[in-house]
Design a protein around this nucleic acid. Structure first.
Lengths: 132, 132
DNA sequence: AACATTATGTAATAATATAACATTTATAAG
DNA sequence: CTTATAAATGTTATATTATTACATAATGTT
């Protein structure tokens, strides 16, 4: 059962715009889109983004500096994320594959390091772009 | 057998400084360090970095916007990368684990997407930081 | 109510990265 | 060797991404 967080005003505004978007959004594009709602400064956006990432409502696509809503209801916090990214149309989707996540969550090597978090980004061509 | 590329002057300078570093380097820190060698502008650094990434001599740590030399002699191009990152001391090392790389290289899901590249970043505490 | 924590507002600035254009050097082809 | 082509360089300006610092307000806890 996922803990319910009460999002603050800015957090709600910014989560909604990301959640409704069909593509990852960048911070300044979010800023532009929420200026009519009274959010004027980058920091207001970044603070909300930080919090939303922390509580797992959104994820950052590191290779794109962009944010998408979590598409995985069981994903409580952003500590195990995997994405597929089309290098042609830039479509991004979150992969939820239990074998993959188990494999990665249990991964250990000889370094003696205990991993508590990972982020995986796969790149390729999506169906549509492949057939072009 | 890895193809030999003849690095250009700037590429050599910038590769050397990354290769000698014990930690990932950021573009502007590289710039600062090579100014005495005549490289004055960010673009000169970024162009060399782009090329070095392209040919697999270095990798970008996306979550840190920093670059490290490839530590894996068989890694010809940067299409299958995995790193372990200590969240305390920020030590980064490249993981070369054939099981992991086979697993990921062969990963396919129901999306119909064919992946030709991936990047994986694991986070945790390294041995030293764990025992503190 | 008092306290602590979290969120907000605002201005300034730092850090990261690219566009555009002119020129030079290296490589390949005839 | 010389012409053509591609790759790399130099330079200026600017775009994009992100944080510092400081003041205030709202919310949650005891």
């Amino acid at each position: 059962m996922q803990k319910q967080y009460n999002l603050s005003k800015n957090q709600k505004i910014i989560f909604d715009i990301i959640d409704k978007s069909s593509e990852p959004l960048k911070a300044y594009s979010i800023l532009f889109n929420v200026q009519k709602k009274g959010i004027k400064a980058p920091l207001q956006v970044y603070r909300a983004l930080d919090k939303l990432v922390e509580i797992g409502k959104i994820h950052k696509i590191e290779s794109r500096n962009a944010f998408i809503a979590c598409q995985n209801s069981s994903c409580q916090i952003s500590k195990a994320t995997a994405f597929s990214i089309c290098e042609s149309c830039e479509n991004v989707s979150e992969i939820s594959n239990s074998k993959l996540s188990k494999y990665l969550a249990n991964f250990a090597d000889e370094s003696g390091m205990k991993y508590n978090k990972y982020n995986l980004e796969f790149f390729g061509l999506c169906k549509k772009c492949k057939s072009k």
